[in-house]
């Protein structure tokens, strides 16, 4: 089996799958599964025009803000907890509980506190998505090779340098793994919180389309959410590859 054959298989198979879906949906004449061409058309009509500003942009904004808070607070708190083992031990049961609590269960709590505005959504996303980053930072920082820390002490490197150039960097593979999990949680919680309590956003409008039985529109929204997830993951992988360039040869 040559590489070229495998590559051909890799390209042809998904293409066949898409073709099959296109043919099936155009023949089926099903109410639930409108023709693929129609979905693509409605995608272009809806999401590339006014909804871009009215729904897509607010969603992206919430995501970006919440994710940034997750990263900064998660890495910061993780660093502190990892460097103070007693505090970590004391906090661990509470952290385990909060981490095991499914994020969407907190939405009513968020609504109670902040109503259905952006604050609620950002609050819910952060509360649900911060844990993988925090826990992975703790593990990553704890796992820093003592040999590196000895080296730093021998050469009398200042503390802040040890933090930024050695500890943070050493822990970065773990931190990035946590950030990747957090990214998909962020998208999921963004969608769910918009579905439950919102007046705009992609999640809101997809559910709205279903409620008004605008099936093509609904499918185009699902397609959009899929694309957001896919592209966010792709962008993250590219970022991770750059950040961890030094791990390739090891």
């Amino acid at each position: 089996m040559t590489r070229r054959t495998l590559l051909a298989i890799e390209i042809v198979c998904p293409a066949l799958a898409v073709l099959a879906i296109a043919i099936f949906t155009s023949r089926a004449d099903s109410y639930y599964f409108p023709p693929l061409s129609g979905v693509v058309q409605s995608f272009a009509d809806i999401w590339l025009s006014e909804r871009l500003v009215s729904d897509l942009l607010p969603s992206m904004q919430r995501m970006a803000i919440a994710y940034a808070i997750c990263v900064v607070a998660g890495v910061g708190a993780g660093m502190v907890l990892a460097r103070t083992p007693r505090l970590m031990t004391a906090c661990e049961p509470i952290l385990e509980f909060l981490r095991a609590l499914p994020g969407p269960a907190l939405i009513p709590f968020g609504i109670l506190l902040f109503g259905i505005g952006d604050t609620m959504k950002i609050f819910i996303i952060v509360l649900g998505a911060i844990w993988p980053i925090l826990m992975n930072t703790v593990d990553g920082v704890r796992g820093v090779d003592p040999a590196l820390l000895h080296m730093a002490r021998v050469y009398r490197l200042p503390r802040r340098v040890v933090f930024s150039k050695i500890i943070l960097r050493s822990a970065s593979p773990r931190i990035l793994a946590g950030m990747r999990t957090a990214l998909s949680l962020t998208i999921i919680l963004m969608v769910v919180s918009e579905m439950v309590g919102s007046t705009n956003g992609v999640g809101f409008s997809v559910l709205q389309a279903q409620r008004t039985f605008a099936v093509s529109e609904m499918w185009s929204g699902i397609l959009l959410l899929g694309l957001i997830g896919f592209l966010a993951n792709l962008a993250f992988l590219a970022f991770e590859k750059r950040a961890l360039f030094w791990m390739r040869q090891r």
Partner: peptide, 25 residues
């Protein structure tokens, strides 16, 4: 140290590794 692979910083070039202690000295 004995284990070179653990005491050098893989994210820094050779010259950055050598220069690191000097940066603060």
């Amino acid at each position: 140290f004995q284990d070179y692979s653990r005491s050098l910083l893989p994210w820094m070039t050779v010259s950055r590794n050598v220069r690191l202690p000097l940066d603060y000295k």
